[in-house]
Design a protein around this nucleic acid. Structure first.
Length: 192
DNA sequence: CTCGCGATATTCT
DNA sequence: GAATATCGCGAGA
């Protein structure tokens, strides 16, 4: 069974929180088409960046800059940017237009010689050959980049939550929020 | 295991 | 113009 994820996955009508979307993304597949070639990987680690109140979020304080304005777009778009001058990060925008929330994809489990070839936000982008040209790509309609549900069921108890990476500066209230989710006992998770 | 550094877009002053 | 950033790697201990 293969089913492409549609708009409602990223913009839940029921008002589901972005945390729930981040958990639902675990076990789904990211598929990238390059000419006749296809690359894919299973999502095993995600992290939530939650709006203007979240100090770790680019849209903290409701700030709008040329880079982050895409976070205010409707869910289903890719938010790609460069960090530390050399690593691309891949996020998916969630929620309806005007709500600057997104999910960072931190790690994929891939099939091949090296199961850790996409274990980390930067490595993942290199693996998928995602760069700035995919900033703003709509994964609901794109022919080169999308997400699939391949029928992998992730049990609630297989999902581990914990504090996000690099958020000490955000203060105790945000630092203790368990906004990072990953699959238990999965070797492709970036850090444990 | 911990540490330090890379190389640049974006933001801040 | 200067500081900084959602990281990964290779070196040294």
């Amino acid at each position: 069974m293969k089913r492409r994820l549609g708009r409602d996955f990223f913009v839940p009508a029921a008002g589901e929180k972005t945390e729930e979307i981040a958990k639902r993304l675990l076990g789904k597949y990211i598929v990238r088409r390059i000419g006749d070639r296809k690359i894919w990987g299973k999502i095993v680690e995600t992290e939530v960046y939650g709006g203007p109140r979240d100090k770790a979020c680019h849209a903290y304080g409701g700030k709008v800059t040329p880079r982050n304005k895409l976070m205010y777009a409707a869910g289903g778009r890719a938010y790609v940017y460069l960090i530390y001058g050399m690593h691309w990060q891949l996020n998916f925008i969630t929620q309806k237009s005007g709500v600057p929330e997104c999910v960072l994809v931190r790690a994929l489990e891939v099939e091949g010689d090296d199961p850790r070839a996409a274990s980390g936000p930067g490595k993942l982008c290199r693996f998928l050959e995602v760069d700035k040209s995919f900033h703003g790509e709509d994964v609901v309609t794109s022919k080169d980049f999308w997400l699939e549900n391949r029928g992998v069921e992730v049990a609630r108890r297989e999902i581990v939550s914990g504090p996000r990476v690099n958020i000490d500066y955000a203060g105790p209230h945000w630092a203790k929020r368990n906004w990072r989710f990953y699959l238990k006992n999965n070797s492709a998770v970036s850090r444990k």
